[in-house]
């Protein structure tokens, strides 16, 4: 009888440990988002993808609707080619929707925000988003700002 309670508590202990691992996998590292649920792939070319990483969020109206699954350099177009996986139940994205790389906060992570277009055609597996806006590079921004001040002085 005593042995049985012993076995029981040990069983609970091991279960708790494994459960903790599962929590770390799903809730903390967000492993689930790319394994659960059906997705469809959409592509977009950006002139500059600096700061964007795979597994970054793809959002619309602030809600996550997918994630970045791959980033490669397109050597023909000299642009960054981003592959996104959009949840299948979000199947009403107009084909002329725009994708932009935005930053959460000043130093926060980069993610892709999609704004709705007006086309009747919807994006489907393998389609490309043509209307893109690149990542904001702080140095460029500052450089442009300084240039403008100088030229307006003239």
């Amino acid at each position: 009888m005593r042995m049985r309670t012993l076995e029981l508590t040990v069983g609970v202990f091991i279960l708790a440990g494994l459960l903790a691992l599962a929590v770390l996998a799903v809730r903390v590292s967000g492993l689930s988002t790319n394994t659960t649920g059906d997705v469809y792939k959409v592509y977009a070319h950006f002139d500059n993808v600096s700061g964007l990483t795979t597994r970054a969020r793809v959002t619309m109206a602030g809600v996550t609707i997918g994630q970045v699954t791959d980033i490669q350099f397109d050597k023909n177009r000299y642009t960054g080619r981003v592959e996104m996986a959009i949840f299948s139940d979000v199947d009403t994205l107009p084909a002329d929707s725009a994708a932009s790389i935005v930053t959460a906060g000043l130093l926060g992570e980069k993610y892709i925000g999609i704004s709705v277009g007006g086309d009747d055609m919807m994006l489907a597996e393998g389609d490309e988003i043509y209307d893109t806006q690149s990542a904001l590079v702080l140095e460029e921004l500052i450089g442009r700002f300084l240039l403008n001040t100088v030229s307006s002085d003239d």
């Binding site: 770390l24 903390v28 590292s29 988002t33 597994r55 970054a56």
Partner: peptide
Amino acid sequence: GSYWSNMQNSVQFGEDVLNGL
């Protein structure tokens, strides 16, 4: 939302969780 999503975006299962394990 940002506490958890920030965490999920930066924590890699293989890199961080498995290496810790």
